[in-house]
Design a binder for these strands. Structure first.
Lengths: 238, 238
DNA sequence: ATGTATTTGTACGTATGTATG
DNA sequence: ACATACATACGTACAAATACA
């Protein structure tokens, strides 16, 4: 763990446990240098990370103020798995594995995962139950050349925990696309759709450190249970 | 313009005009130091910005590879206004101003915009037409203490251009929340809803450099015309 | 209104560590 | 084993914005 990451994690914990409350100023950079026995460069890296992720706002001549956002759950924002954010939902959350198969990709998935027809992919389908209702249908397609084994019992917990902690795969970044779609028969079979006739479809492509794609996921949500929160800084060009 | 921003903008232009194509490597940091007569620190700041925004992927020991995303439009991602992204939609786009009024905020908006009952806010309602169909209903609530005048004719173009170029307001960051909602009578009156009975509602809170909130926006989209793309890097904690 | 101290922003230099080829 | 490239960390200096006496 690099020093600047240590400082980032410590400050983040202190923001989350309200040692530093929204509206309050963080200690200045010089003070943090002394507290953590670090150079200004290192302290500034940590603060920049906090600012990027929406925890603080920096202001020249003033200091860094703690923002009062990020106090709620941040479903789907960033590259976060369902089980990582489940605790913050504070609900009764369960996962049912509907399908787990190794197969050849069809032409569409060959393109999505950059596979040839002879190679293999995993297809993992899971239903997410919140408070006893089936409200999310996740279908994952994984490059089986990168992930040879996928134990079914692990999949009831977190795919990401298995990939990172067991396989030490360096998950790096993701592209996501959110759209609406009409509910399919599969949606109606596997989800408690009530009277809704649409779903929110979140498609994501996940990449490793070396920019290899290893996962494509379609996550279909019942519309009343869907929420996406985002924090973004404005980028001024020219 | 700081040097690192210059380098960022130059490299970004070169990525967009395909001087550097997806899959290709950028020049190494030492080469960029010579090209731009800059220190390594400065070059690295530029590259980090490109990586944050999804244009390149850096890899220790290898270099920086250009990613092939961000080639499409990025609707709503980041803090971007409708008119800024309209050209990338490449469609026939028009805006109708439905309402522009200065009034006192109700209790709900007093809380959203941090206003007292005696202060004023602007309410700006606009319908976005794409290819002749009314598909987006934007309702903006703006702190009238920060923005005293709001000329109606400017609003047919871009609110953000007016706020930044005319008023020099330092727009800094935004929180957004995407949910689904049943279409209201207002939605059905102002939008071409076809047979859809739901809308996608994007609520956003926009802040200035000093963390003052100055805008709350509700943007209601017909579901078949809604798309949101996101790029996110995984943050590893502890 | 002015000057001074404080705080963050930018830029440069140097050294060492780590991953890749 | 070696060279290359990025990552981290330390230092210094000055600029720009802010706060305050």
């Amino acid at each position: 763990m690099a020093k600047y990451q240590d400082i980032y994690n410590t400050l983040l914990s202190q923001i989350e446990d309200r040692t530093y409350r929204p509206g309050e100023m963080l200690p200045g950079e010089h003070e943090l240098m002394q507290v953590y026995d670090a150079s200004r460069d290192t302290v500034r890296k940590s603060l920049s990370l906090l600012a990027q992720n929406g925890y603080i706002q920096k202001a020249q001549g003033k200091g860094s103020v703690v923002l009062d956002i990020n106090q709620f759950e941040f479903p789907l924002s960033g590259v976060v798995s369902f089980h990582e954010l489940a605790p913050s939902l504070g609900k009764n959350v369960k996962t049912q594995v509907v399908m787990l198969e190794k197969m050849h990709p069809d032409p569409h998935m060959q393109e999505n995962l950059h596979l040839s027809a002879e190679e293999y992919m995993w297809v993992l389908q899971r239903v997410r139950m919140v408070d006893g209702e089936a409200v999310i249908l996740d279908t994952d397609f994984l490059n089986a050349q990168i992930i040879p084994h996928l134990p079914a019992k692990e999949m009831k917990k977190s795919l990401y925990v298995y990939l990172e902690d067991e396989l030490h795969l360096p998950i790096s970044y993701a592209e996501k696309e959110i759209t609406c779609a009409m509910a399919t028969n599969e949606d109606r079979m596997l989800l408690d759709m009530k009277n809704f006739d649409m779903v929110v479809n979140v498609e994501s492509y996940t990449y490793l450190d070396d920019s290899r794609i290893f996962q494509f996921t379609s996550s279909r949500h019942r519309p009343d249970k869907f929420i996406f929160k985002d924090f973004a800084r404005r980028i001024h060009r020219i």
